[in-house]
Nucleic acid binder design. Structure first.
Length: 252
DNA sequence: GCGACAG
DNA sequence: ATCTTGTCGC
């Protein structure tokens, strides 16, 4: 039911990723990031899109802003959107970014004082085929510090989900433990993090923009009540709730 | 041909 | 992403 991806489009997207890749800032740029307790950090954002079953186009774009360190929801924005780009692994940003940017724009217009100081993104940052995942894309285009948190491992640049990987996961004993995801080039592209004591399945953290990897991992851990960091979890729950309320299951 | 494939 | 309830364990 879906048209095969146009080669031209994919090449255009690759070229766009290469262009924007050079604008990523992979280090801490904010004062709060250097503080052991993130003193000065008061607002953390989370974004996500939820879909209607069997609907390729319509989705709910969600932005939430939570207080830090309390992690209570200060702001919520749900907006139905019509997606135009197809989902292609490695090009998730072209499908989702425009709507996440619009949500940030609405926030800037309506509650600028609630603009988050860092945004958690559902997906990868530098841990990506061309080192430019969704979290980098949103970071560069918004100018905000962003952290990528993926729930599943993407096999990229020499990182495999093999026995070695499984054994490294088994070695993560307590919440906060992590191990590096190292590309064949030797560069550490991200880290697998045991985000909570309970969940043995890690999350995959990588730099999006304007934050260093170790800071991103430490911050992610500090935002986890459960396996998925609270900002992303809230965005996910609330966008799904929105769909439940506004688009009841179609029966026949 | 086979496996991989963030969300 | 979504399809999907209960169930086993701490």
């Amino acid at each position: 039911m879906s048209a095969p991806p146009s080669e031209d489009l994919v090449q255009q997207w690759e070229s766009e990723q290469a262009r924007l890749r050079g604008l990523v800032v992979e280090q801490d740029t904010e004062q709060w990031q250097k503080n052991p307790d993130f003193l000065g950090l008061e607002r953390v954002g989370g974004v996500d899109l939820s879909f209607i079953k069997g609907d390729e186009v319509n989705a709910c774009a969600q932005l939430v802003v939570l207080s830090y360190p309390q992690l209570e929801v200060l702001y919520e924005d749900s907006q139905m959107v019509a997606l135009t780009a197809p989902y292609i692994a490695g090009f998730l940003a072209f499908r989702e970014t425009p709507f996440l940017l619009e949500a940030l724009k609405r926030l800037e217009k309506n509650k600028p004082e609630l603009m988050p100081q860092v945004v958690f993104v559902d997906g990868n940052g530098l841990f990506h085929y061309r080192e430019f995942g969704l979290a980098c894309h949103l970071g560069v285009l918004s100018g905000l510090p962003c952290v990528g948190v993926a729930k599943n491992l993407l096999q990229v640049e020499g990182v495999y989900k093999n026995e070695e990987h499984q054994s490294q996961i088994a070695a993560l004993q307590k919440g906060g433990d992590s191990f590096p995801l190292t590309a064949s080039s030797g560069k550490v592209l991200g880290k697998a993090l045991r985000s909570s004591q309970k969940s043995s399945k890690p999350v995959y953290v990588s730099v999006g923009h304007k934050i260093g990897l170790d800071t991103a991992v430490r911050l992610t851990h500090s935002c986890c009540r459960y396996r998925v960091p609270e900002p992303i979890r809230q965005a996910d729950c609330r966008s799904r709730e929105y769909l439940r309320v506004h688009f009841p299951a179609a029966e026949t």
